[in-house]
Design a protein around this nucleic acid. Structure first.
Length: 357
DNA sequence: CTCTGTGTTGAC
DNA sequence: TCAACACAGAGG
Protein backbone atom coordinates (compact mmCIF):
# COMPACT_ATOMS: atom_id res chain seq x y z
CA UNK A 1 0.00 0.00 0.00
CA UNK A 2 2.94 2.25 0.12
CA UNK A 3 2.90 5.00 -2.39
CA UNK A 4 -0.76 4.83 -1.84
CA UNK A 5 -2.81 5.87 -4.74
CA UNK A 6 -4.28 8.33 -2.40
CA UNK A 7 -1.13 10.29 -2.09
CA UNK A 8 -0.62 10.33 -5.78
CA UNK A 9 -4.16 11.23 -6.43
CA UNK A 10 -4.13 14.22 -4.24
CA UNK A 11 -0.66 15.28 -4.94
CA UNK A 12 -2.09 18.01 -6.98
CA UNK A 13 -5.25 18.83 -8.65
CA UNK A 14 -5.40 20.11 -12.06
CA UNK A 15 -8.15 22.43 -12.84
CA UNK A 16 -7.75 24.85 -10.04
CA UNK A 17 -10.58 26.38 -11.90
CA UNK A 18 -12.13 29.13 -9.85
CA UNK A 19 -10.59 32.32 -11.06
CA UNK A 20 -13.58 34.48 -10.48
CA UNK A 21 -12.08 37.83 -9.80
CA UNK A 22 -11.64 38.89 -13.41
CA UNK A 23 -14.78 40.84 -13.60
CA UNK A 24 -14.66 43.19 -10.68
CA UNK A 25 -16.52 45.62 -12.77
CA UNK A 26 -17.58 47.31 -9.63
CA UNK A 27 -21.02 46.49 -8.52
CA UNK A 28 -22.88 49.06 -10.34
CA UNK A 29 -26.27 49.98 -9.35
CA UNK A 30 -27.94 51.18 -12.43
CA UNK A 31 -30.71 50.10 -14.59
CA UNK A 32 -34.24 51.21 -14.72
CA UNK A 33 -36.70 52.20 -12.15
CA UNK A 34 -35.51 51.98 -8.63
CA UNK A 35 -32.68 54.14 -7.70
CA UNK A 36 -31.14 54.07 -4.35
CA UNK A 37 -28.06 52.95 -2.67
CA UNK A 38 -26.83 49.90 -0.97
CA UNK A 39 -24.30 50.25 1.70
CA UNK A 40 -21.06 49.34 -0.02
CA UNK A 41 -19.62 48.39 3.32
CA UNK A 42 -21.93 45.64 4.19
CA UNK A 43 -22.87 45.07 0.62
CA UNK A 44 -26.03 43.52 1.80
CA UNK A 45 -29.56 44.12 0.88
CA UNK A 46 -30.14 45.52 4.28
CA UNK A 47 -33.39 43.70 4.73
CA UNK A 48 -34.85 45.86 1.99
CA UNK A 49 -35.62 44.49 -1.43
CA UNK A 50 -32.52 45.34 -3.30
CA UNK A 51 -31.24 42.14 -4.76
CA UNK A 52 -27.56 41.44 -4.43
CA UNK A 53 -25.86 41.65 -7.79
CA UNK A 54 -23.57 38.88 -8.85
CA UNK A 55 -19.86 39.20 -9.36
CA UNK A 56 -20.13 36.81 -12.21
CA UNK A 57 -20.84 37.59 -15.78
CA UNK A 58 -24.16 36.38 -17.05
CA UNK A 59 -25.50 35.77 -13.59
CA UNK A 60 -28.47 37.60 -12.16
CA UNK A 61 -30.08 37.35 -8.75
CA UNK A 62 -33.51 35.94 -8.26
CA UNK A 63 -35.99 37.19 -5.70
CA UNK A 64 -35.83 33.98 -3.74
CA UNK A 65 -32.12 34.05 -3.26
CA UNK A 66 -31.30 31.78 -6.14
CA UNK A 67 -29.36 32.77 -9.23
CA UNK A 68 -30.30 32.93 -12.84
CA UNK A 69 -27.91 32.58 -15.75
CA UNK A 70 -28.42 34.24 -19.07
CA UNK A 71 -26.53 35.03 -22.20
CA UNK A 72 -27.35 37.39 -24.99
CA UNK A 73 -27.26 36.73 -28.63
CA UNK A 74 -28.66 38.72 -31.46
CA UNK A 75 -30.20 41.26 -29.15
CA UNK A 76 -32.10 38.63 -27.36
CA UNK A 77 -31.64 37.05 -24.04
CA UNK A 78 -31.30 33.31 -23.83
CA UNK A 79 -32.22 32.09 -20.42
CA UNK A 80 -29.89 29.39 -19.08
CA UNK A 81 -31.84 28.47 -16.03
CA UNK A 82 -31.80 29.10 -12.31
CA UNK A 83 -29.37 27.71 -9.79
CA UNK A 84 -28.96 27.50 -6.08
CA UNK A 85 -25.34 28.46 -6.15
CA UNK A 86 -24.05 31.61 -7.70
CA UNK A 87 -20.96 29.84 -9.00
CA UNK A 88 -23.13 27.15 -10.52
CA UNK A 89 -24.93 29.76 -12.55
CA UNK A 90 -21.59 31.25 -13.51
CA UNK A 91 -20.41 27.90 -14.77
CA UNK A 92 -23.56 27.48 -16.79
CA UNK A 93 -22.84 30.81 -18.39
CA UNK A 94 -19.28 29.73 -19.12
CA UNK A 95 -20.48 26.64 -20.90
CA UNK A 96 -22.95 28.63 -22.93
CA UNK A 97 -20.61 31.42 -23.84
CA UNK A 98 -17.99 29.01 -25.04
CA UNK A 99 -20.52 27.23 -27.16
CA UNK A 100 -22.06 30.43 -28.48
CA UNK A 101 -18.98 32.50 -29.01
CA UNK A 102 -16.16 30.10 -29.20
CA UNK A 103 -13.13 29.57 -27.10
CA UNK A 104 -12.02 33.13 -27.05
CA UNK A 105 -15.07 34.15 -25.15
CA UNK A 106 -14.62 35.73 -21.79
CA UNK A 107 -15.52 33.31 -19.06
CA UNK A 108 -15.98 33.52 -15.34
CA UNK A 109 -13.69 30.63 -14.63
CA UNK A 110 -10.85 28.93 -16.37
CA UNK A 111 -11.83 28.46 -20.00
CA UNK A 112 -11.60 25.11 -21.69
CA UNK A 113 -8.17 24.42 -22.96
CA UNK A 114 -7.69 21.95 -25.75
CA UNK A 115 -4.29 21.12 -24.43
CA UNK A 116 -6.07 19.41 -21.60
CA UNK A 117 -7.52 16.08 -22.49
CA UNK A 118 -10.63 16.42 -20.43
CA UNK A 119 -11.24 19.89 -21.76
CA UNK A 120 -10.67 18.78 -25.32
CA UNK A 121 -13.33 16.17 -24.83
CA UNK A 122 -15.70 18.75 -23.51
CA UNK A 123 -14.97 21.07 -26.39
CA UNK A 124 -15.80 18.28 -28.75
CA UNK A 125 -18.94 17.58 -26.78
CA UNK A 126 -19.95 21.21 -27.08
CA UNK A 127 -19.19 21.23 -30.75
CA UNK A 128 -21.33 18.23 -31.39
CA UNK A 129 -24.46 19.71 -29.90
CA UNK A 130 -26.51 22.62 -31.08
CA UNK A 131 -26.77 25.71 -28.98
CA UNK A 132 -30.35 24.82 -28.22
CA UNK A 133 -29.32 21.43 -26.94
CA UNK A 134 -26.65 22.89 -24.72
CA UNK A 135 -29.07 25.47 -23.39
CA UNK A 136 -31.61 22.78 -22.74
CA UNK A 137 -29.10 20.74 -20.80
CA UNK A 138 -28.09 23.74 -18.75
CA UNK A 139 -31.65 24.62 -17.93
CA UNK A 140 -32.43 21.09 -16.93
CA UNK A 141 -29.18 20.74 -15.08
CA UNK A 142 -28.23 17.71 -17.10
CA UNK A 143 -25.18 19.12 -18.79
CA UNK A 144 -22.75 17.39 -16.51
CA UNK A 145 -24.47 14.08 -16.92
CA UNK A 146 -24.62 14.31 -20.66
CA UNK A 147 -20.99 15.24 -20.79
CA UNK A 148 -20.15 12.34 -18.58
CA UNK A 149 -22.12 9.97 -20.73
CA UNK A 150 -20.30 11.12 -23.80
CA UNK A 151 -17.05 10.50 -22.05
CA UNK A 152 -18.16 7.08 -21.02
CA UNK A 153 -19.06 6.22 -24.55
CA UNK A 154 -15.72 7.35 -25.71
CA UNK A 155 -14.05 5.43 -22.99
CA UNK A 156 -15.69 2.16 -23.81
CA UNK A 157 -15.18 2.63 -27.46
CA UNK A 158 -11.59 3.38 -26.87
CA UNK A 159 -11.08 0.07 -25.19
CA UNK A 160 -12.62 -1.82 -28.02
CA UNK A 161 -10.40 -0.29 -30.56
CA UNK A 162 -7.29 -0.58 -28.55
CA UNK A 163 -6.06 2.33 -26.63
CA UNK A 164 -3.00 2.91 -28.72
CA UNK A 165 -2.90 5.54 -31.37
CA UNK A 166 -2.48 8.46 -29.18
CA UNK A 167 0.48 8.87 -26.89
CA UNK A 168 2.46 9.99 -29.83
CA UNK A 169 1.31 13.52 -29.72
CA UNK A 170 0.36 13.32 -26.15
CA UNK A 171 -3.26 13.97 -26.81
CA UNK A 172 -6.26 11.83 -26.41
CA UNK A 173 -7.26 9.19 -24.02
CA UNK A 174 -7.08 11.37 -21.04
CA UNK A 175 -10.68 11.28 -20.14
CA UNK A 176 -10.82 7.60 -19.51
CA UNK A 177 -12.14 6.73 -16.14
CA UNK A 178 -11.96 3.60 -14.16
CA UNK A 179 -15.02 2.92 -12.10
CA UNK A 180 -14.06 2.32 -8.52
CA UNK A 181 -17.29 1.73 -6.64
CA UNK A 182 -20.72 3.05 -5.81
CA UNK A 183 -22.46 3.63 -2.56
CA UNK A 184 -26.09 4.32 -1.89
CA UNK A 185 -25.96 6.89 0.84
CA UNK A 186 -27.59 6.12 4.13
CA UNK A 187 -29.64 8.53 6.21
CA UNK A 188 -26.62 9.19 8.39
CA UNK A 189 -24.46 9.86 5.37
CA UNK A 190 -26.69 12.77 4.47
CA UNK A 191 -27.64 13.66 8.02
CA UNK A 192 -26.09 15.72 10.74
CA UNK A 193 -23.04 13.58 11.18
CA UNK A 194 -21.41 15.38 8.31
CA UNK A 195 -19.58 12.36 7.09
CA UNK A 196 -19.76 9.68 4.49
CA UNK A 197 -18.75 6.21 5.46
CA UNK A 198 -16.65 4.53 2.82
CA UNK A 199 -17.27 0.81 2.98
CA UNK A 200 -14.11 -0.66 4.38
CA UNK A 201 -13.76 -3.07 1.53
CA UNK A 202 -13.64 -0.27 -1.00
CA UNK A 203 -11.72 2.09 1.16
CA UNK A 204 -8.84 -0.29 1.64
CA UNK A 205 -8.81 -1.29 -1.96
CA UNK A 206 -9.02 2.11 -3.58
CA UNK A 207 -8.04 4.61 -0.95
CA UNK A 208 -5.37 2.90 1.07
CA UNK A 209 -4.50 4.88 4.15
CA UNK A 210 -1.69 3.96 6.47
CA UNK A 211 -3.21 3.72 9.88
CA UNK A 212 0.09 4.49 11.45
CA UNK A 213 2.25 7.47 11.06
CA UNK A 214 1.76 11.16 10.93
CA UNK A 215 -1.14 11.32 8.56
CA UNK A 216 -2.80 8.51 10.36
CA UNK A 217 -5.09 10.28 12.75
CA UNK A 218 -5.69 13.37 10.72
CA UNK A 219 -6.16 11.57 7.48
CA UNK A 220 -5.55 13.27 4.17
CA UNK A 221 -7.33 15.73 1.96
CA UNK A 222 -8.59 14.30 -1.29
CA UNK A 223 -9.77 16.17 -4.33
CA UNK A 224 -12.63 14.89 -6.39
CA UNK A 225 -14.06 16.38 -9.52
CA UNK A 226 -17.75 16.12 -10.20
CA UNK A 227 -19.51 15.82 -13.52
CA UNK A 228 -19.66 19.55 -13.83
CA UNK A 229 -15.94 19.95 -13.43
CA UNK A 230 -16.25 21.34 -9.96
CA UNK A 231 -13.56 20.19 -7.58
CA UNK A 232 -14.57 18.98 -4.17
CA UNK A 233 -12.07 18.62 -1.41
CA UNK A 234 -12.79 16.19 1.40
CA UNK A 235 -10.88 15.03 4.41
CA UNK A 236 -10.46 11.31 4.28
CA UNK A 237 -9.57 9.49 7.47
CA UNK A 238 -10.07 6.45 9.58
CA UNK A 239 -12.14 6.64 12.70
CA UNK A 240 -10.81 4.26 15.26
CA UNK A 241 -13.90 4.70 17.39
CA UNK A 242 -16.13 3.16 14.81
CA UNK A 243 -13.42 1.48 12.82
CA UNK A 244 -14.65 3.15 9.71
CA UNK A 245 -13.17 5.04 6.81
CA UNK A 246 -14.89 8.35 6.29
CA UNK A 247 -15.01 11.51 4.28
CA UNK A 248 -15.61 14.32 6.71
CA UNK A 249 -14.62 17.92 6.15
CA UNK A 250 -16.27 19.15 2.99
CA UNK A 251 -18.79 16.37 2.80
CA UNK A 252 -21.74 18.24 4.21
CA UNK A 253 -21.30 20.92 1.62
CA UNK A 254 -21.45 18.34 -1.10
CA UNK A 255 -24.60 16.87 0.38
CA UNK A 256 -26.20 20.24 0.53
CA UNK A 257 -25.26 21.43 -2.89
CA UNK A 258 -26.18 18.21 -4.59
CA UNK A 259 -29.35 17.96 -2.62
CA UNK A 260 -28.51 14.42 -1.64
CA UNK A 261 -31.07 12.26 0.05
CA UNK A 262 -30.82 8.82 1.52
CA UNK A 263 -30.80 6.26 -1.23
CA UNK A 264 -29.03 8.43 -3.76
CA UNK A 265 -25.98 6.82 -5.20
CA UNK A 266 -22.50 8.21 -5.09
CA UNK A 267 -20.12 6.93 -7.72
CA UNK A 268 -16.37 7.09 -7.49
CA UNK A 269 -14.10 7.03 -10.48
CA UNK A 270 -10.45 7.58 -11.11
CA UNK A 271 -8.78 8.61 -14.32
CA UNK A 272 -6.58 5.98 -15.82
CA UNK A 273 -3.84 8.36 -16.73
CA UNK A 274 -0.85 8.91 -14.47
CA UNK A 275 -2.58 11.70 -12.68
CA UNK A 276 -5.09 9.29 -11.32
CA UNK A 277 -7.49 12.07 -10.65
CA UNK A 278 -10.51 11.20 -8.61
CA UNK A 279 -14.08 11.83 -9.62
CA UNK A 280 -17.28 11.79 -7.70
CA UNK A 281 -20.80 11.88 -9.02
CA UNK A 282 -24.22 11.53 -7.56
CA UNK A 283 -27.28 9.92 -9.01
CA UNK A 284 -30.69 10.54 -7.58
CA UNK A 285 -32.45 7.50 -6.30
CA UNK A 286 -34.93 6.31 -8.85
CA UNK A 287 -38.23 8.00 -8.51
CA UNK A 288 -36.94 11.26 -7.25
CA UNK A 289 -37.38 14.34 -9.30
CA UNK A 290 -34.76 16.49 -7.77
CA UNK A 291 -33.43 19.33 -9.75
CA UNK A 292 -30.23 19.43 -7.83
CA UNK A 293 -29.22 15.91 -8.56
CA UNK A 294 -30.42 15.18 -12.01
CA UNK A 295 -31.15 11.62 -12.75
CA UNK A 296 -28.88 9.64 -14.88
CA UNK A 297 -30.03 6.34 -16.17
CA UNK A 298 -28.04 3.44 -14.79
CA UNK A 299 -29.04 0.96 -17.46
CA UNK A 300 -27.18 2.80 -20.12
CA UNK A 301 -25.36 0.15 -21.96
CA UNK A 302 -25.65 1.25 -25.50
CA UNK A 303 -22.30 2.50 -26.49
CA UNK A 304 -23.30 5.03 -28.99
CA UNK A 305 -20.70 7.57 -29.79
CA UNK A 306 -22.16 10.86 -30.67
CA UNK A 307 -20.58 10.44 -33.96
CA UNK A 308 -17.34 12.05 -33.12
CA UNK A 309 -14.08 11.01 -31.73
CA UNK A 310 -12.31 12.85 -29.12
CA UNK A 311 -8.95 13.85 -30.22
CA UNK A 312 -7.58 17.21 -30.74
CA UNK A 313 -10.26 19.63 -31.51
CA UNK A 314 -9.04 22.95 -32.72
CA UNK A 315 -11.28 25.89 -32.40
CA UNK A 316 -13.13 26.29 -35.61
CA UNK A 317 -15.57 23.71 -34.41
CA UNK A 318 -17.91 26.34 -33.24
CA UNK A 319 -17.34 29.97 -32.93
CA UNK A 320 -20.05 32.40 -33.51
CA UNK A 321 -21.38 32.10 -36.96
CA UNK A 322 -21.48 29.16 -39.24
CA UNK A 323 -22.65 26.50 -36.96
CA UNK A 324 -25.80 26.51 -35.03
CA UNK A 325 -29.19 26.34 -36.52
CA UNK A 326 -30.62 26.46 -33.11
CA UNK A 327 -32.69 29.42 -33.95
CA UNK A 328 -35.88 27.54 -33.93
CA UNK A 329 -36.02 26.81 -30.28
CA UNK A 330 -33.81 29.40 -28.78
CA UNK A 331 -35.59 32.60 -29.22
CA UNK A 332 -36.79 33.98 -26.02
CA UNK A 333 -39.41 36.12 -27.55
CA UNK A 334 -42.30 33.88 -27.05
CA UNK A 335 -43.59 30.96 -25.16
CA UNK A 336 -40.88 28.59 -25.94
CA UNK A 337 -41.56 26.24 -23.18
CA UNK A 338 -43.41 23.41 -24.78
CA UNK A 339 -41.11 22.61 -27.63
CA UNK A 340 -37.36 22.54 -27.12
CA UNK A 341 -37.57 18.95 -28.01
CA UNK A 342 -37.61 18.94 -31.71
CA UNK A 343 -34.02 19.76 -31.99
CA UNK A 344 -32.63 18.22 -35.04
CA UNK A 345 -29.29 17.14 -33.81
CA UNK A 346 -27.15 18.24 -36.60
CA UNK A 347 -23.82 16.73 -36.09
CA UNK A 348 -21.24 18.66 -37.83
CA UNK A 349 -18.24 17.08 -36.42
CA UNK A 350 -16.58 14.87 -38.87
CA UNK A 351 -14.02 17.34 -39.80
CA UNK A 352 -12.02 17.25 -36.73
CA UNK A 353 -11.60 13.70 -35.80
CA UNK A 354 -9.11 12.46 -38.22
CA UNK A 355 -5.44 13.01 -38.06
CA UNK A 356 -5.17 10.52 -35.30
CA UNK A 357 -6.93 7.69 -36.96
C1' DC B 1 -49.51 29.52 -3.65
C1' DT B 2 -44.29 29.88 -5.20
C1' DC B 3 -40.97 31.40 -8.21
C1' DT B 4 -39.24 31.22 -12.94
C1' DG B 5 -37.86 33.74 -16.55
C1' DT B 6 -39.80 37.29 -19.77
C1' DG B 7 -40.72 42.24 -20.72
C1' DT B 8 -38.34 46.17 -20.64
C1' DT B 9 -35.25 49.87 -19.61
C1' DG B 10 -30.96 52.38 -19.37
C1' DA B 11 -25.91 52.08 -19.01
C1' DC B 12 -21.98 50.74 -21.29
C1' DT C 1 -24.38 43.48 -24.91
C1' DC C 2 -25.41 43.58 -20.53
C1' DA C 3 -27.61 43.68 -15.81
C1' DA C 4 -31.45 45.69 -12.96
C1' DC C 5 -36.01 45.72 -11.98
C1' DA C 6 -41.06 44.53 -12.12
C1' DC C 7 -44.24 41.26 -12.43
C1' DA C 8 -47.14 38.06 -15.83
C1' DG C 9 -48.15 33.77 -15.67
C1' DA C 10 -46.24 28.84 -15.54
C1' DG C 11 -46.25 25.25 -12.53
C1' DG C 12 -47.21 22.77 -8.09
Amino acid sequence: MGTSSVEEACGEMRKPAPVPSPNPKSLQRVGSGASDVIDPEVGVEAESRKLPSSHYKGVVPQPNGRWGAQIYEKHQRVWLGTFNEEAEAARAYDVAVQRFRGRDAITNFKPLNDADNADAAELSFLGSHSKAEIVDMLRKHTYGDELQKSRLSFCLDGKKTTPRSAPATGLLVGAQRQHLFDKAVTPSDVGKLNRLVIPKQHAEKHFPLQKTGAAAGKGVMLNFEDAYGKVWRFRYSYWNSSQSYVLTKGWSRFVKEKGLEAGDVITFHRSTDPEKQLFIDSTARAGRGSAAAPTQRPPVQVVRLFGFNIFRNPAAAFGGDGVDGNAASCETGKRNRDHMKSMSSQRMIKRHCNEAL
